[in-house]
Write a protein that binds this DNA or RNA. Structure first.
Length: 127
DNA sequence: GTTCTCACA
DNA sequence: TGTGAGAA
């Protein structure tokens, strides 16, 4: 299984994603309604997010912080999709696991937000 | 204990 | 966007 496939595995329930992104469950569900993310569903109809979903939510938050509205976010997210086709990073399994483990074990900042936030973002961006 | 959907003094 | 109800 390659890195790309692993990034799409439905793994996290909304509570985890909440802490990973700093977004409220309400916002996360709201963004799903607007098709900004497409989490899979468990047998019990529970949302399961992949790394790709988490990454997108972090980007959504960034764009929203920049003052964009839902429409603006959708537009820029759509453009990013095409422009990003060629520069996806190639990482070894070890790099992936090590990075994730470190991020999850990092202590929270005084603001209560996990450092994993920025790390995950940069991680998939370029490296 | 968590998450889901739906509705709103 | 938040909050609470009722169910799973």
């Amino acid at each position: 299984m390659d890195v790309d496939a692993r990034k799409r595995l439905p793994l996290f329930p909304i509570g985890i994603v909440q802490r990973l992104t700093g977004l409220s469950a309400r916002q996360i569900r709201y963004y799903e309604q607007h098709e900004l993310v497409h989490p899979a569903r468990s047998e019990g109809n529970q949302r399961l997010f992949s790394f790709v979903d988490v990454e997108r939510l972090l980007e959504v938050r960034t764009l929203l912080d920049e003052g964009l509205n839902m429409a603006g976010v959708k537009a820029r997210l759509a453009k990013r999709q095409n422009r990003r086709r060629s520069d996806s990073a190639e990482l070894t399994d070890e790099q992936v696991y090590q990075h994730i483990r470190q991020g999850l074990l990092e202590p929270r900042t005084p603001s209560g937000v996990s450092e994993f936030q920025g790390d995950l973002f940069r991680f998939y961006r370029k490296h």
